[in-house]
Design a protein around this nucleic acid. Structure first.
Length: 592
RNA sequence: CGGGGCGUGGCGCAGCCUGGUAGCGCGCUUGCCUUGGGCGCAAGAGGUCCGCGGUUCGAAUCCGCGCGCCCCGACCA
């Protein structure tokens, strides 16, 4: 694959799983001339390790919130990441495109997303024409498909691009983890039917597995929420790291789901026996669940939390167990709409006849009541009485009020796995790639049809699949660093090796370093030669920082014995090698 | 959008409360010295103190209005 894309000296390297891009010709690079602006101190704005390291190692510089310049080292890594992705997309039959980032509003108006998506950058041209900067390209790809795809004979198709995406994020953050402009590999599959879509989807699942493995990342494959993309099924690859914003629920049996999607049973709560009827009791000033817990000495699992929402301008009352939290993502699924908001205190007062803190479902009129499943079958609970400073005890759902039971709550650590019943663990994680079965979502709204074998006009079945390149680099830095810096996986590191001359003033050391450098270059090893007039300590610190997997050190003492040192950054193991065996040894390791 | 923090040389910070010549460490330049883990000595260069307006004889410092960046929350293909 490498040889096809980059014919050259490496063409016959026996490396079908290759490390991605290799430069066709030797790329001489002396550190004294390279722009690698390393920083000794951590810039104050950087919080998460990957952000600190990418700044300190001279990979990137910030331009504005969520906008970063990729400097020399970052660019090299991104080219390698892109090439790995390219090879794996091509392997599953993908065809690389390149669409404009700037797009007309019309297509988005047609799909209906012009109104519903709020993180899109919009602008007008000199003729007051509405345009947007692409945050994804379903509309544009569908537009090409509907114009050109006519027959089932042309299917399936997988089209992809590696291209800039723009999002007017409410809060860019964490360095390269949440950006306003970023590079995405986005692909789109077009099939005749759902079975075909399944195949395209599974191909992507497999391609993504290979991509992230080759990039040296530890990932989880999880069930996900499809959100505003629409569609029926979605999953994602995420990289566990503390810098991640997503929480992933995992269990021993292999179940793994994004918290937005995760389902679970709450550990059972014990309710008293008996058929006591609701009975008001005074709770002066007790407004929150935690107030009530202290006041009644009952467990929060025995309370009903009442939340008022306005859903498409109608009131809906949501009920949750006292110790549970509402998932607005699940609420979207339960209600079938994302048009809702929390009711104002005034609206709640009007509906319940009581102020916030004493709201409850019993005797309530004029609102739909949706309760979380964890309340189903419970009895003798505590709820607001719809009278100020008063609650009810002995409230039993079903008997004392009617409700629809839906999954509404955020799963918590220790909840029971829906598959195996064992407790779930929660892990922070970075979303790297997302896969969506879109089905007819765009082909219906944009009328993308083909003829099937019987001559019937049928809508294309689509999938869309994204990978964030910056997140791959960031996650790699998050997962592979120590106090001294990064040790990036060799496949995505900007260089294979740094050659460090401990002392450039020493003629023998200098000559040996120059010779080693030339040899490695000739052998197509990607080598950065640290020829700077610096003290050895400075060079070692810098080499440790920038994430290059190996360092070859030439120093006068070992050189006198004809030896060089190979230092492996990730393990800090040092191996002494005869000077004339350096290239062969390294080549066996780096280009394996 | 709500809450909090911060803006002073390339980086990290002090100075602000109590107004009066803008400072420290690192980095940078030059020379000497040193050469296996950010060495030492000496001499230098480098700042619209985020911006605008106000108060004042005088503003980095006090007041007002903006802007930017970071963090928490909300939100998020």
């Amino acid at each position: 694959m490498r040889s096809a894309a980059f014919p050259g000296k490496n063409a016959n390297a026996a490396d079908p799983e290759g490390a991605g891009l290799r430069y066709q010709e030797a790329h001489p690079m002396r550190w004294s001339q390279a722009f690698i602006p390393t920083l000794r101190e951590v810039p104050a704005e950087a919080e998460v390790p990957s952000h600190q390291l990418l700044l300190r190692a001279g990979y990137v510089r910030q331009v504005a919130a969520g906008l970063y310049a990729h400097l020399f080292l970052a660019r090299r890594s991104f080219l390698k990441i892109a090439q790995i992705i390219r090879e794996e997309m091509n392997r599953i039959g993908g065809q690389e495109f390149y669409l404009p980032a700037l797009n007309p509003a019309e297509l988005w108006q047609e799909s209906g997303r012009w109104e519903t998506v709020d993180v899109m950058f919009r602008l007008k041209d000199r003729n007051q024409h509405d345009l947007c900067l692409g945050m994804t390209h379903e509309e544009e790809m569908t537009n090409i498909a509907r114009g050109e795809l006519r027959s089932y004979r042309q299917l399936p198709q997988i089209w992809y691009q590696i291209q800039e995406k723009f999002r007017d994020e409410p809060r860019p953050k964490s360095g390269l983890l949440r950006l306003r402009q970023f590079v995405m590999k986005d692909s789109y599959s077009f099939d005749l039917d759902d079975a075909g879509l399944d195949v395209s989807y599974r191909k992507h699942v497999e391609a993504y597995r290979r991509i992230f493995d080759r990039c040296g990342l530890k990932t989880l494959f999880v069930e996900a929420f499809s959100g505003m993309m629409g569609g029926s099924e979605s999953s994602e690859y995420t990289a566990p790291t503390d810098a991640g914003e997503d929480l992933i629920a995992t269990s021993e049996c292999g179940y793994a789901a994004n918290l937005e999607k995760a389902e679970a049973q709450a550990p059972p709560a014990e309710d008293p026996a008996g058929e006591a009827l609701p009975e008001p009791f005074p709770t002066p000033g007790q407004k929150s669940i935690s107030d009530l817990v202290k006041f009644t000495k009952e467990s929060p699992a025995r309370m009903i939390k009442t939340l008022d929402y306005i859903v498409e301008s109608r009131p809906v009352v949501l009920l949750l167990r006292g110790d549970h939290e509402l998932s607005e993502t699940k609420l979207i699924m339960a209600l079938g709409t994302a048009v809702f908001r929390l009711a104002t205190p005034e609206e709640a007062l009007r509906l319940h006849g009581a102020h916030l803190g004493s709201l409850g479902p019993v005797g309530l009129k004029g609102a739909r009541i949706v309760a979380d499943r964890a309340l189903e079958g419970r009895r003798d609970l505590i709820a607001g009485a719809n009278r100020d400073d008063t609650h009810l005890r002995h409230v039993t759902p079903g008997r004392d009020f009617a409700a629809e039971f839906r999954d509404l709550r955020v799963v918590a650590e220790g909840d029971l796995c829906p598959r195996c019943g064992k407790p779930l663990k929660l892990t922070k994680s970075v979303e790297l790639g997302h896969l969506f079965k879109l089905g007819r979502r765009y082909s219906d709204s944009m009328h993308a049809m083909v003829l099937d074998a019987e001559g019937n006009e049928v809508p294309l079945r689509m999938g869309s699949y994204g990978i964030g390149l910056e997140r791959i680099l960031s996650a790699a830095a998050e997962q592979n660093h120590d106090a001294d810096g990064m040790f990036l996986p060799p496949s995505i590191a900007p260089f294979d090796v740094v050659v460090t001359a401990a002392n450039m003033e020493n003629a023998d050391v200098r000559a040996a370093a120059e010779k080693t450098y030339e040899e490695l270059l000739a052998a197509s090893v990607e080598v950065l030669f640290d020829d700077r007039q610096e003290r050895p300590g400075v060079k070692f610190k810098d080499a440790d920082l920038i994430g290059v997997p190996y360092r070859i050190t030439l120093g006068k003492r070992k050189l006198a014995q004809g030896l060089a040192e190979i230092f492996e950054r990730s393990t800090k193991q040092i191996q002494d090698v005869k000077l004339d065996a350096v290239t062969a040894t390294l080549k066996a390791r780096c280009l394996q």
